[in-house]
Design a protein around this nucleic acid. Structure first.
Lengths: 211, 211
DNA sequence: TGTCAACTGTCAGTGGCTGTCATTAGCCTC
DNA sequence: GAGGCTAATGACAGCCACTGACAGTTGACA
């Protein structure tokens, strides 16, 4: 049972988050001041900072949820699966379950808009990449444990995860600069690009085109 | 022939850069104010901002040079070379020529210290990753042109570069958290890790250990 | 119902960064 | 070599993100 105080807090946080994302995605992250966000929810600026450590944290609040979900999905993959295959399955599962993951906080449509805003805002892109790096470190440790190797002595877990992360970033980039901003589009792109890594590394692209 | 005014500007910039890196690496980036840097060189804060767009730009001024050199090295690789091999050679050449590249601005030792500071400062790490992403985009276009494919239609150039960039990041991380902060160490790590990507992707690390 | 603790608002202050304007100092011409 | 021109600088005011401190308010709970 949820107390009134808790309900109020949750509502305030949700309102702040939603107002923030709405403003970020419509008028731009840099051109949105914390005062504006606070004013939109009718709280003081100080209160905003009690819910979010900064503008940035608000911008990534939903991403945080999907990342956590992805990490959990990797953890849940059967141990006999090869590392790269486990990552592939986990990320695709993540896209399949995105509605369920996100909708409790904000509409999926707003989430997708924010996703693109992150890609087109330099400071947010930087933060996103740093966050991805942190997630990759988590995953690398997970895989290392799973496979029974020492993550600090054997570079292969980190290498594998870095490669995987690289592919994901290319996918994100392509999706957010393309025309089809649907969920299906990014899921399909993810699968397609993961399939093409091997051939990308071998070179001879000119010759192999169309094969 | 260099005029007096130009000489003064160059000296001021160099003094600011050096003071900034010295302060960043000794007392930390976040704990260094622009006022401190300006004071150390005996100019006004406003003048600092006339030479550098912000603290961040000063922190990356030397990295900027090495990145440019790397891009040039890739461009100079023979066209018949496979893409990944060209990248590998270019980055190793870059490490070999690092003294020559950097010493005109600051001592190499200061550059290496700053390199590590970037890795251990979240906001600088974020900026570094974003800058890397920009460089990767440049390289991807370069490779695509070289190989005669369309960078927007064919994902393989970006995928290859992303994979390569991922390996480099793992290398940087390992180097900056290890004990050997020498130039030789990072060069050797780079070569070693690039060799291991293949085996990292195949999985079965436990079985393959020691092979 | 009264006490406590959580939540919030207000205010003052720091630091990064920008625009403006007057002043200084190198440059170049007559 | 005296003058005007212009780049470089300093001083100042101001915006915005963010923080600490303190006081007021409002749910929780005995």
């Amino acid at each position: 049972m949820e107390t009134l105080r808790e309900r109020k807090k949750r509502r305030t946080r949700q309102a702040l988050l939603r107002a923030a994302l709405e403003l970020f995605t419509t008028q731009g992250y840099e051109h949105t001041t914390v005062d504006e966000i606070a004013e939109a929810v009718d709280v003081s600026q100080r209160t905003f900072f009690r819910y979010f450590a900064g503008k940035e944290e608000a911008a990534f609040a939903v991403q945080e949820m999907t990342e956590a979900r992805f990490v959990a999905a990797v953890r849940a993959r059967p141990p006999h699966e090869a590392p790269m295959e486990a990552l592939r399955q986990a990320v695709l599962e993540g896209w399949d379950a995105i509605r369920e993951t996100v909708e409790s906080a904000v509409p999926v449509e707003l989430y997708l808009r924010m996703y693109r805003t992150i890609g087109s805002t330099p400071s947010l892109l930087a933060a996103h990449l740093r966050r991805s790096a942190a997630t990759e470190e988590t995953i690398a440790r997970l895989l290392a444990e799973r496979e029974g190797v020492d993550v600090d002595a054997d570079p292969r877990p980190r290498l594998a995860v870095a490669v995987f992360g690289g592919v994901i970033r290319v996918t994100e980039r392509q999706w957010s600069t393309g025309e089809d901003f649907s969920l299906e589009a990014i899921r399909a792109l993810t699968a397609s690009y993961l399939d093409q890594v091997g051939s990308a590394l071998t070179g001879n692209w000119g010759d192999a085109r169309g094969c």
